[in-house]
Amino acid sequence: MSSLILRAGTRILAPMMLLLSVFLLWRGHNLPGGGFIGGLVATSAIALQGIAFGPEAIRRTLVVPPAVVAGVGVLIAVVAALPAALAGLPFFTGLWLKLDLGDGAVLPLSTPLLFDIGVYLTVIGGVCALIAALEEEPSLEGGEEGG
């Protein structure tokens, strides 16, 4: 599709959506949001680029192949479950690291956040792989009537 309005709009919308997705990921620990929904919003931004600028824009935006993003995401999510072993706690127990930033400000970093980042990347990679496959693969054994 080559629509000037869509391309111009996408240039503004896609970065905003990506920002929103990170915001959703960040607040998702205690409030509605999280890695899954954040990942879907980010994927929408990337898909929008794909619609406006063609499928190769999806690959360009992700830099690495979508499957690699998904694979890294799965590994991060699994790794998030493991630090509990060092603390002698059961599998997947949430652990917090509270960084003191001075002036009474505390930055809580946690394994659930790490897990959510893993989910975020898995969703982006997985859905982008699906979209890219649908955009690029030739249809199977030629088109048959009715389907």
């Binding site: 690699v68 694979g71 799965v74 590994l75 699994v78 493991l82």
Partner: peptide, 15 residues
């Protein structure tokens, strides 16, 4: 965890 890691690792080694 092991099959999850295997799935992730084999995805990364796809190339």
């Amino acid at each position: 965890v092991v099959p999850m890691l295997s799935a992730g690792a084999t995805t990364l080694a796809h190339a």
